[in-house]
Write a protein that binds this DNA or RNA. Structure first.
Lengths: 327, 327
DNA sequence: TCCGATCCGTGAATCGTTTCAAGCTCCCCA
DNA sequence: TGGGGAGCTTGAAACGATTCACGGATCGGA
């Protein structure tokens, strides 16, 4: 039903090997022959069967990415960066979601392994060194986002979260808002802990002790959780002078709920987020935040995989973006 | 490097055919043999090579979905519905984005065709009957979202947008807000035109002519565009009593910008959106909107594909969700 | 005229799985 | 005792692209 390389060969009056050469190493084929073959391909509407190619070659022209939450623009930007870099390198990218579930993560890894991808970019949930080693043994390269793993052969790309947290907190301190609340998640993944760590360090370097800070933890980093956090803060009676949310979704939900309750931002309380996702700029009170180079994060990961690197680590730098919510 | 069915067979002391049977028709294999084979699989960490399976079978255990904009929650919910239904049916789903570009759409279709998927779910941008026919000739089934195409063999699933538009407008009329502005896109894809058509019909049925309405068109249905639309409305000097945005992202951007300029919603102006994406419930002024059964939309499409249907059409029903922005 | 080099094209072997006709054992029943 | 199922297993032939050792043609130079 679908035309194979054999029919193309017959139509062009050449052997299958020659058709394959036209497809893969056009330079070794004589001009006239090449044209004939290309014409036949065109006429038959021939499309290469990737399954056959992958079977023969051991692995395909494909990378995979597994992100935690497709509803968070942070991850979609990341994946898009990976996709752009893959395409540039002549590869395609398969998107998958783990939804933060170890079980789903495992299933997606199985899927990508079965598909014969040649590399996987992942924001790991429960991935351990054993599984990485197994994948590496099957010649599937791994690039971790925001998580290091030594010795297993994986590459990784992270952002300097300690520095990011410090940038955010310094800004609040400069505004005279050292009486601060943190809105974070529980459990707290390593990158988030680092952000808060950097912020606390900035506080103590400025001479303020951690006893003056308040921490509110929600189970998920979503805007619904931000809303809930705002309500909890309002119940306390007195608001802190500044609030540092460990991501923008939390911050946006929180700001919306505060505004709805008549709180003036940034006059009554300054709010700062983290990520600089698209909506941060268009919400009611444009959000001061720490930009992560998300696109570059994904692109770098893909480039490491395409370059066949092992055990390489790259760190990118975050950047403060000042808007209305803390200024 | 990676264990093949042959090594499993050797280790278990059976033939490759038997291993394949254990994998695909466990019931025909004797208990003892099956256990032996499963043990060998376990010990070797055997993972099925999908490329070989796909090659042999002609098409794989995989469906593909191509959506327009991965940053719009509408599409991610849709894709998730498709994924859930696929998994339930024992299939995996490959996510792709066309970004609304005909060129990218073509490339993604090529990709999925090469991968040997057995069906494709798509919100079409430039897909025409020819391409559908070609895919069908290769035994790849197609399910269109929100677009009908007759005769080419494609299935489709839509929501009754005329009805949705009518629901929205009737609600505004009941609130006494028949002096209305539409915020839409230019060009206007068919589903959007239908929404506006339904709304206009509701207006005229209530005795109000279209000459009383104002239409603002933006190139894209994003929250940035909604912001711009709000600014254009504010420049007019007088606001209409109601605003109907053809999707929630537009509505959210518009509401934010209006609120920032001191406009009271819903007192000064009632705003209604369309889609009921997640953020609609958590934004500053919770949004009255028309809910589309997005998850069901994607799931139904996947189910049609898995059932091997051709030329089938399913229509789902939208639902009014009343929140603060128009009440 | 002959040799070697260069340029192109050939065709069979290969990748790992599924499929299916055929064979092998056992056991039951006539 | 033999015939015939039933129940399991086997082994070889596909699927379609890539690879590579090999061979034929052509050309320049001696």
């Amino acid at each position: 039903m679908r035309a194979s390389i054999r029919e193309v060969a017959r139509r062009a009056g050449v052997s299958v090997g020659t058709v394959s050469n036209v497809l893969n190493r056009p330079d070794v084929v004589a001009e006239a022959t090449r044209v004939r073959v290309l014409t036949a391909i065109e006429e038959l509407g021939f499309v290469r069967n990737e399954a056959a190619r992958t079977l023969r070659q051991g692995s395909g022209r494909t990378l995979g990415v597994i992100v935690e939450d497709i509803a968070n623009p942070y991850f979609t930007d990341l994946a898009r960066g990976a996709e752009d870099a893959s395409n540039t390198g002549g590869y395609d990218l398969i998107w998958c979601t783990s939804d933060g579930s170890p079980e789903k993560e495992r299933r997606r890894l199985d899927f990508l392994e079965q598909q014969g991808v040649s590399g996987i970019i992942i924001t790991p949930v429960a991935l351990d060194a054993d599984r990485v080693a197994r994948l590496r043994a099957r010649d599937i390269r791994i690039a971790l986002i925001d998580r290091r793993m030594s010795g297993a052969g994986a590459c990784s790309v992270s952002v300097d979260h300690v520095q990011g947290g410090r940038l955010a907190m310094r800004h609040l301190i400069e505004l005279g808002r050292h009486d601060v609340a943190f809105v974070t998640t529980e459990p707290e993944p390593p990158p988030v802990r680092q952000r808060r760590g950097g912020a606390l360090r900035a506080l103590s370097q400025a001479g303020y002790g951690p006893e003056q800070t308040l921490t509110i933890a929600e189970p998920e980093p979503t805007s619904e959780a931000g809303q809930r956090a705002a309500r909890r803060l309002l119940e306390f009676g007195t608001l802190p002078a500044g609030i540092f949310c460990v991501n923008d979704l939390l911050a946006i939900g929180l700001v919306n709920e505060l505004v709805r309750n008549g709180v003036k931002i940034p006059q009554d309380v300054a709010v700062i987020g983290y990520d600089d996702i698209g909506p941060a700029a268009t919400c009611v009170i444009p959000l001061t935040t720490v930009r992560q180079p998300r696109h570059e994060l994904g692109a770098t990961a893909a480039e490491l995989l395409l370059a066949g690197a092992d055990n390489r680590h790259v760190t990118l730098t975050p950047e403060l973006v000042v808007r209305e919510s803390a200024s």
